[in-house]
Write a protein that binds this DNA or RNA. Structure first.
Lengths: 217, 217
DNA sequence: GTCTATAGATTGATAGAC
DNA sequence: GTCTATCAATCTATAGAC
């Protein structure tokens, strides 16, 4: 959008697509609905992106590239600090370095309120083409985290670390999905969420406590 | 299917639909493909079930009704045993009573090899109509588990127990999804899975250890 | 119960004027 | 870059013969 304060068509389409893909899923969201809500012409998606799938890839890349930079820096900072102090990195600081920015990204980066939900659903997406677009962009960072976690837990074998990390990823993505939906809330519970919303600080600490306990078990 | 050893059309459609819904998702699976693979006519789905959505509901009900009976009995057994021994139920035995049959159901009930994947995806389904069909059938049991967990953890407030249970459900459903897919496996890792498959016994124990540690934290 | 045939709607994509 | 118009494919669902 450059210096203008009005976003151009391409940017508006990305914003609307991100929100609709997050809340209704890729296959349930038609290009007609995206372009209509973005105030653009139906043909604009194919002009600017080439296809619906290419649009999804751009939606991911726009946020994942800066987010991955943040997470990589934090992970490497934990690794380097441990090295300088001549000790192993601890699982809790590694998990925090990865998970905290993942969940908080919606607050750090303005306009990405719905990206959390989108990412939370990405791994559960049934269509492998769609799922692979996401996996391709997340895999290098996931591998780094896995590698560092192994060095942090030298007494555990690869399989055990791998599965515990999967359990932690399951908890994390489930939380990310829930932040956008509430059908799972038991009747009569947590009505305070309705009024004040979820306290993200407390939620992140609860989540980190949970996965750290299971990881260090 | 009664006494015949050949399943009737209705049953064959349910089997194929379960598998295709699990691996490709509800919206990505057409009635044409289901009926073709089931060796039935396209119109058979609407004759036997009324609609595609009603078919999905039958796919869920066929397995969830017996599975829920098992889980309820196990949960109530834990509760009653604790009451007889005049103590509180423990979180680990409650989680085991719920999670173990959930994951092992594919082995207990012949023909339900793909139901695990389907359930693992159900909560992440973007379409709320589809998601609600599942939630409606699982909610009573989830509420029972939540209630018993609260009594097992009297020092924790409702919100904390609620979120920890959500974290555990996230881990569990993520595992159920992964049992059918392997794109997330880091390159070069866990090749033994390819040959021997995942050892379900070890996986279940790892998962229960992980979520119990986080729950009792 | 099973079949053919088709209605009726929606989709992603594109050609071509401006 | 944006628009209209439309194509070609797909889908669920149903009517009606057998």
């Amino acid at each position: 959008m450059g210096l203008s304060n009005v976003k151009d068509t391409r940017e508006r389409i990305l914003d609307v697509a991100e929100r609709l893909f997050a809340f209704h899923g890729f296959h349930y969201t038609s290009l007609r609905r995206i372009t209509t809500e973005a105030g653009a012409n139906l043909a604009a998606v194919n002009y600017h992106f080439g296809s619906k799938e290419a649009l999804l890839e751009e939606v991911f890349k726009r946020r994942l590239i800066p987010l991955n930079t943040i997470r990589r820096e934090k992970l490497e900072a934990v690794r380097d600090r441990a090295a300088k102090e001549e000790r192993l990195p601890r699982p809790d600081e590694l998990l925090r370095a990865f998970i905290e920015p993942t969940i908080r990204f919606c607050c750090l980066e303005p306009g990405s309120e719905h990206f959390s939900t989108l990412v939370g659903r990405a791994l559960a997406e049934p269509d492998s083409t769609v799922r692979n677009i996401f996996i391709q962009h997340i895999m290098p960072l996931f591998s780094l985290l896995f590698e560092l976690l192994q060095s942090a837990l030298p007494d555990l074998d690869r399989n055990t670390v791998f599965w515990r990390l999967q359990f932690a990823m399951g908890s994390t993505t489930h939380v990310m999905r829930m932040l956008g939906k509430r059908e799972l809330l038991p009747p009569g519970l947590v009505r305070e969420m309705e009024s004040g919303g979820v306290d993200l600080d407390i939620l992140v600490e609860n989540l980190l406590g949970f996965v750290t306990a299971g990881m260090e078990l």
